[in-house]
Design a protein around this nucleic acid. Structure first.
Length: 588
RNA sequence: GGAGGCGUGGUGUAGAGGCCUAACACGCUGCCCUGUCAAGGCAGAGACCGCGGGUUCGAAUCCCGUCGCUUCCGCCA
């Protein structure tokens, strides 16, 4: 090892020690007769001082030639800084190294962007093109360290709870009923393809049939779908599966793991958990109060129902609607027509027919606009249901239940953001349970699974299966946090007959079902234990704990929104020789 | 597939039909400087305003197209 200490290690108590540090020139302050160099490595900054009276002329000359991002090695002696020259903002601020030798390992061109910021001042395209420079930022080092500690915590925790990590293949089988897959051509089997796994779902269930009982894996998953701030084409999950468990066993396991992590790693991310134990709400509650199946629970602004009041309203829009729901935007009574029009646009984009705006004035609902059409009694009843105060703005959607709730859910998030209601230093973890198992897909005229087709129905709903599929609830649970889905899981079907009923309901012929999922159906006939699991998203959890706005900040080499990497220049065209070997022809 | 936003020296921005021979800050180069830590002072270099077309006497600025990045909708069992 060429260095005796890191650039973040030295303190006043090290005074007099001879040391060797190595790293990058962060900044150079040259006074002509005195030079300071901030030496940076992953661990911190240390000030190197070059005094011409105390170093040979050739060493001083080397120091004069240094530029930002040069890689250097410095030998010197730790000195206590004069009292007034200490820097309390630096962990190493009490000391400086009086250099006796400076070696340049490598010079550096002028970087295309500054390294001494958090990167928010630089176009992200450039950051990603020069990711190896971008990673030198303190922010990136902190994020990758946090991610490492999260994964290490997961491994230690799972190990401590009797789980073993088992690797599953990346070259997997194409399966329908899921996300679009990445395909890999087989050379040995011309015309045949592997698929990269969207998740190790089936394999981990087969591990349960294989008697592993407690499995986990830090698993890479691949989905060829369009990107979002919280979606990358390849991502990492803590994949978990256990035998002989109920829903609460799985939820409790993950909940304790996250609480422990948040407690032990408080120094790194500084985030507080808003709910311990985690909140629990049913899908119906989540939709009804927050208009979302992954609500941001850091603030209230719950949706309320005034249908009982408006059923016989003198306001035709209200009277005709299947349901009328609303939210209160506190203190927004001063909104202009232009501002409320923006909100109306947002509601329409989310599928609502429109937005009804009422103003809560000093003496009740303002009698203008929609307010003029409401009777005195209705206005009073609406304010009572809303629980609003003078100066508030009331937003209503009169529509069928689902569009009304989802539109108000989006409006709630929009108003929450405008009013800065969500505390950015908190994490509001919660479980959402009792999801409907199936949703009717109008376009395809068939039932589609809400989670996936291996999720078990609640025992009491088994009989409604064929008669009323929309009413069947599954043993599914989603981990949500601050408006993100941080993970999802379920108790699985472990019997062939039940699995076949699900497949039949989804419109799969038994022939098709067997072709695609025969390995599962067969396995269930050889003593498959009851089992269930979950897969928290590692990238998303790292993002949430780090307080970052997107996944790219917690991934060393992420893809951009076009699923491309402009540093590597991928994806890229294969050679004619490669294609020929794979028996693949490109048709553009 | 669709909608919005952005694109001007190395970086981040200003600019809203003629005042642009394009401004400011940071960075960069040179010189001065012994206690700075976002060091300071002086001087200087560096941009055909993403690309293509159009309107106009005149376009960074208006219009059309296109490319790149980003956020969102669809999609994500």
């Amino acid at each position: 090892m060429r260095k005796t200490h890191t650039a973040g290690a030295l303190r006043a108590t090290d005074e007099g020690r001879s040391v060797i540090l190595a790293g990058w020139v962060h900044r150079r302050r040259d006074f002509g007769g005195l030079i300071f160099i901030d030496l940076r490595d992953r661990y911190g900054l240390t000030q190197i001082t070059l005094d011409p009276q105390r170093v040979p002329a050739d060493v001083f000359a080397v120091a004069e030639s240094l530029r930002p991002e040069y890689v250097i090695e410095v030998e010197g002696v730790v000195h206590l800084r004069p009292e007034k020259m200490r820097n309390p903002r630096l962990a190493t601020g009490d000391v400086e190294i009086l250099a006796t030798r400076v070696l340049v390992h490598n010079a550096a061109k002028v970087p295309p962007f500054p390294i001494d910021s958090d990167g928010s001042d630089v176009d992200e395209t450039l950051r990603l093109k020069y990711r190896y420079l971008d990673l030198r930022r303190e922010r990136m080092a902190r994020n990758l360290t946090l991610r490492h500690r999260l994964i290490k915590h997961m491994r230690d925790y799972m190990d401590g709870n009797g789980f073993i990590e088992v690797e599953t293949p990346i070259l997997f089988k194409s399966t329908p009923e899921g996300a679009r897959e990445y395909l890999v051509p087989s050379r040995v089997h011309p015309g045949d393809f592997y698929a990269l796994p969207q998740s190790p779902q089936q394999l981990k269930q087969l591990l349960m049939v294989g008697g592993i009982e407690r499995y986990f894996q830090i698993a890479r998953c691949f989905r060829d779908e369009d990107q979002r701030a919280d979606r990358q084409p390849e991502f990492t999950q803590l994949d978990v599966e256990m035998s002989f468990v109920d829903r609460d066993d799985v939820m409790g396991l993950i909940e304790r793991m996250l609480i422990q992590f948040a407690t032990e790693q408080a120094d790194l991310h500084g985030k507080k958990l808003l709910y311990t134990p985690f909140r629990r709400l049913t899908f119906a509650e989540a939709m009804g109060k927050y208009g979302s199946d992954k609500p941001d629970l850091r603030f209230g602004m719950e949706i309320f129902d005034v249908s009982a009041v408006t059923r016989n309203s003198s306001f035709a829009v209200f009277a005709a609607a299947e349901t009328v729901r609303g939210i209160v935007a506190p203190g927004c009574g001063g909104y202009t027509r232009k501002q409320t029009d923006e909100l109306t646009e947002l509601a329409k984009r989310e599928g609502a027919k429109g937005l009804v705006v009422l103003y809560h004035d000093a003496d009740g609902v303002r009698a203008s606009g929609a307010g003029a059409k409401l009777s005195e009694a209705e206005r009073a009843a609406i304010l009572a249901a809303a629980g609003s105060a003078p100066g508030d703005l009331l937003l209503f959607v009169a529509d069928a239940e689902t569009p009304a709730l989802t539109a108000l859910g989006k409006l709630r998030l929009e108003m929450g953001a405008r009013l800065k209601l969500a505390d950015p230093s908190t994490l509001a973890f919660a479980w959402v349970i009792d999801f409907p198992m199936f949703t009717w897909d109008k376009d395809e005229s068939r039932w589609v699974p809400n989670h996936h087709l291996f999720t078990a129905p609640r025992d009491e709903d088994l009989e409604k299966f064929e008669s009323n599929p929309g009413e069947v609830k599954g043993k599914q649970y989603d981990l949500v946090c601050n408006g993100y889905e941080a993970g999802g899981g379920s108790i699985r079907i472990h019997r062939r007959d039940v699995q076949e009923r699900v497949m039949r309901l989804l419109g799969l012929s038994m022939e098709e079902a067997y072709k695609k999922f025969g390995h599962m159906l067969d396995a269930f006939e050889y003593g498959a234990p009851p089992h269930g699991g979950i897969a928290p998203g590692v990238d998303r959890l790292a993002m949430l704990f780090a307080g970052e706005p997107n996944l790219r900040e917690v991934i060393a080499f992420p893809k951009n929104q076009q699923a491309a990497d402009n540093m590597l220049g991928i994806p890229s065209a294969p050679t004619a020789k490669q294609l020929k070997e794979l028996s693949v022809r490109v048709d553009l």
